[in-house]
Amino acid sequence: MSLPKISCVPASRLLSSIHDLRWLLRSVTPLSVPRRALVQSEYRRPGQPREDKPQWQMFKFDFSKGLEGIKKHFKLLRHEFSGRFVGPEGKPIIEHMLEQNRVIWEFRGPDSLQEWTLSSDREIGGQSEIYLKLGRNSDTCFLYGTLQNAPPRDGETRYSGYCTMRSKQPLASFDRKMHYDWSSFNTLHLRIRGDGRPWMINVATETYFAHQKYDLYSYFLYTRGGPYWEDVKIPFSKFFLSNRGRIQDDQHPLWLDKINTIGFTLGDKAEGPFQLEIDFIGVCKDYAHTEEFAYEAYKRNPEV
């Protein structure tokens, strides 16, 4: 667990602790986060060979891109440094301590849609479609599309029919990974307006081992439908662990200190159009909720 921790420490503190710069330059290279895990890559079918391209063809060496990158990354870096003087996470300490709730994602303007990625079973050969746009007053996010259950005709896929919206991993300057730290909250709060279909909320956390790459913590989101907004509160203790869509036997509570992404999945096997409108996604502290984990975490004796 030590490697990602070091890579998260801001550069200034690393520099202050190390005096020999040559040693630093040597050691930084293996410490850098692998690129594939950093950026959400395209879906690669299991067994499909990886793209065999030399490294230099995968990068775009473009002057304008470089300029933009410098602008973007140094701006982020400046915010990072200046935010540290204000308080933790760029907020005053009093606000940080007394915070009862936090709005994580809200949809104001077209820029806010850039933080999300869409995918459907089209990438495995299905026929579902999903689109994202701003709502009527351009202050909500309107997710719509069509769900189709027809499995791809490849002879091995048996089920199909899903649509997903997933947030992008937050990145600090120079494309370092950042995580959401929600450890002072215990409930997810959404304001949505659906069409009666059940959705699934998936929370992905930072993991260390490669086999945990597809770990997701999921829970269900039932919508009422109709013209009224509804406030949904889901305690984090209810989320259960799954890997590649299979519920795991060995459950443990969701650790909220390193949250990477949140996603919404639809796969209720009802073919046809769907829509979901999201006003905001936030986290809050619910003092009435004291449950730590909703599922049995004890070990049986004998174990199985």
Partner: peptide
């Protein structure tokens, strides 16, 4: 107390009233 404000800091959506369905 100081931090006991439990309302979210979001702009309220104003969509107009629904009269009937």
């Amino acid at each position: 107390d100081l931090g006991d404000d439990e309302s979210f800091d979001v702009d309220d959506l104003d969509e107009g009233p629904v009269f009937a369905m």
